[in-house]
Write a protein that binds this DNA or RNA. Structure first.
Lengths: 179, 179
DNA sequence: ACCTGAACACCGTTCAAGT
DNA sequence: ACCTGAACACCGTTCAAGT
């Protein structure tokens, strides 16, 4: 996309803003991060942010996309020996940005673009779980029934911030029963 | 609690406000319901609400409590022939106020009283599911492992507003495997 | 005791103006 | 093209004043 130096600079600035927003959204939360605070963290006037992003929700979408992209990158760079290891790794990764999960669910109701992103995200999760379950030897006919249980349990564990031990126990209960 | 006429009037007014807030929170959502809109809906000045409730979160807590109370009342007035029927009934009841579920999860992070209410609510759900699972003949040793899976799946189905058929399928997958 | 008008602090966003 | 100061609309909340 970025053709000339000007485009590259603009892209770099966008990336810088998204990085700062990512840090603040996770540290303070989306609602608690004001555009003013984000602006000072980047060293710019609040309204300057609106030259790069139409509004706060588009900024959220950019943060979500970049988070998912780096998650995917890390995933590809790893080898997993078992279904368990795979699932727990994913759990730990997502736990680091669990406040984003809650934020998405809150904004889905009021923002159409966020709702679309949320749908796409779940399609991705579904595809991943289907692959994992089939890989683990679950009969394809039974997969569809378990899909939502797996996804929702995982998401619930994140948004409720359960201690690692409890999350482990719940995921284990699921796994031993399915496989 | 209400001793004399004055207390009764005050309690009645509080109940009226809570009822109006309940309707608006469910119809429009918590964030999208301004104190001003709620005030006009009750026919009073916005700041009058602060004579009855310290802030918007306390109003939310009152709505949550009243919702839970009437749910409990309805529950007691019913007979359930099976675990399935019981669970689906609960699902349908909670679906009617699913936006409150999302709101609670969003406010838990920032409001201590809401966090306490949320903890109490999950204790209640845990107790209920334990009772149901034992009733259904699940070995007590296995109950604790399934508890969180049941709770989180139920909550996830609500907050994601899945169509009835899909929710039915997920809950059925859980039930047939557990029992 | 109960209610209100006016005001405050804050926040997302816009706009006209600068370079 | 990129950035800013000033302003706008809105919202939760407070406060002094009314009855």
């Amino acid at each position: 996309m970025a053709r000339n130096k000007r485009d590259i600079d603009k892209e770099a600035k966008r990336t810088e803003i998204v990085a700062a927003a990512h840090a603040l959204f996770i540290q303070k939360g989306f609602d608690e991060t004001t555009m003013g605070a984000l602006a000072t963290s980047v060293g710019v006037a609040p309204n300057t942010l609106y030259w790069y992003f139409a509004n706060k929700d588009e900024l959220l979408l950019a943060v979500l996309d970049s988070t998912l992209l780096s998650l995917h990158r890390d995933f590809m760079a790893r080898q997993f020996s078992s279904f368990d290891e795979h699932l727990f790794w994913l759990y730990e990764q997502l736990l680091a940005c669990n406040s984003l999960v809650t934020t998405v669910h809150a904004r889905v109701i009021v923002s159409e673009p966020v709702a679309e992103w949320h749908t796409r995200f779940h399609h991705m999760l579904d595809a991943m779980f289907t692959w994992l379950l089939v890989q683990a030897g679950v009969a394809p006919a039974k997969v569809s029934g378990w899909l939502d249980v797996c996804t929702l349990t995982l998401e619930g564990l994140l948004s409720h911030r359960y201690e690692a031990a409890r999350a482990q126990r719940a995921l284990s209960a699921l796994l031993t029963e399915i496989c």
